[in-house]
Design a protein around this nucleic acid. Structure first.
Length: 273
DNA sequence: CGAATCACCTGATCGC
DNA sequence: TGCGATCAGGTGATTC
């Protein structure tokens, strides 16, 4: 579900909703079913008594900054955060705040992660440390960097830009969109892109992520902003989910096929190998 | 080492 | 209406 724009949207929503001056963690409750990667209850309890000082995004991770700890959250495919005292099926983590509200994590498939890390050490966690450039915040992400990174890489360019050790934030939806905008076939070997193509692709990646953030993310089925509303970038998708529909530029039928295990969409006329 | 595949889960959808 | 097969926004372990 959540790629960079969706996580950024959740982060901004939580910033609006949370009361950083007065919200202290009173206690944390966990369902009996664990997420794919989740700290033990006793470890999470170290957050009790601490203030939530801020929310940050690192790649597709959300971080709740406490006084001495960081709560690291990854939404997996179906994770979401909301403020609501009532419980629903698939609510797995409930953080009770001193203002009486409950910060709740919902995740049907439980592919998400939730860990507590020391404030001074979270950046050394390998999941954070090994992350690549963020196209939205790292100003030195550009075509030249992309060109150098892709040299000698034999994998499909679509798989390359979805690999979080090179570039962060691009998932299955925005990979197809960015490659369409750049006119590059998703199955082209990464190492065969020209300098010009890397320039176009770096720009397309940054643009599509920025536009999707501005639209509040993409809601295909269940993505929700922290306040509960849907995003609306799904109305602006150019190729994703449009198999056999007409390309908006040339009218040719959009094609879809799995590339490295993930369904991919492209225009066979606008996008070249 | 790089690259591809599998595994982890539940729910929605589709064809019969 | 019911049932099985298939697919879904991600990532980390395993295999080649």
């Amino acid at each position: 579900m959540p790629e960079l724009p969706e996580v950024e949207t959740v982060k901004r929503g939580l910033e609006q909703i949370l009361d950083f001056e007065n919200s202290q963690v009173i206690r944390i409750e966990c369902s009996d079913k664990k997420l794919r990667n989740q700290s033990a209850k006793a470890s999470l309890d170290q957050a009790c008594g601490q203030r939530i000082r801020g929310v940050r995004r690192k790649a597709k991770y959300l971080l709740f900054e406490l006084d001495d700890w960081v709560l690291l959250s990854h939404l997996g495919m179906t994770g979401s955060w909301r403020i609501e005292n009532d419980q629903r099926k698939h609510d797995h983590i409930r953080i009770f705040l001193s203002d009486g509200r409950v910060l709740t994590y919902h995740d049907a498939r439980r592919f998400g992660m939730f860990n507590i890390l020391p404030l001074t050490q979270w950046q050394q966690d390998p999941r954070i440390d090994l992350l690549g450039l963020d196209p939205v915040v790292d100003l030195d992400f550009n075509g030249e960097k992309l060109f150098r990174m892709t040299r000698k890489r034999e994998t499909a360019i679509k798989a390359f830009i979805m690999n979080q050790t090179f570039i962060v934030g691009v998932g299955n939806i925005y990979a197809s969109e960015a490659l369409f905008m750049a006119g590059i076939h998703p199955n082209k070997r990464a190492g065969r892109l020209t300098g010009k193509q890397c320039e176009l692709l770096a720009t397309a990646i940054r643009d599509v992520l920025d536009m999707a953030i501005a639209a509040g993310g993409t809601t295909i089925s269940d993505f929700r902003q922290a306040g509960g509303s849907a995003g609306y970038f799904q109305n602006q998708l150019l190729v994703y989910g449009r198999d056999r529909e007409h390309c908006h530029f040339c009218g040719t039928g959009v094609r879809s096929q799995a590339i490295v295990g993930r369904n991919s969409f492209w225009c066979p006329k606008c996008q070249r190998m």
